[in-house]
Amino acid sequence: MNNTELKKEILRISGVNVKKCMKCGKCSASCPAYDEMEFHPHQFASMIDNGEIEPLLRSDSLYRCLSCFACMERCPRGVEPAKLIEAVRLTAIRKQGANRMTADDVPQMLDDNTPGQLLVSAFRKYTK
């Protein structure tokens, strides 16, 4: 897919209207994973709008988003950056062999208290 098609696809999956963004940066100001991310929530909105999707697809930022929805809750324009990040992440891991996490990774994540919820959630997010 070229960038125009990718953009269309991501807007379709996310259901987000990126044109509503007024570039205030409140999403990135709210983001608790900001320092771990290469691209930040507001950049997802503007880069997707510009059709610059490839760099996002390759970025580890996709896997740092906590899905905590703070950006969605606080956005004054209803842009919902978390949905954009989710859409790009799915576009990345839906490709054959693009799973981020495999069963082999599990043992090193475990300690005595690790809740099943952690593994289930992580697999949901990192694996297709």
Partner: peptide, 19 residues
């Protein structure tokens, strides 16, 4: 109402630790 780090602690314990 700020996130603890959630499932990302699986991949990035540092983030979870900080939060």
């Amino acid at each position: 109402n700020e996130c603890c780090g959630g499932y990302v602690s699986a991949e990035s314990p540092a983030l979870a630790e900080k939060n």
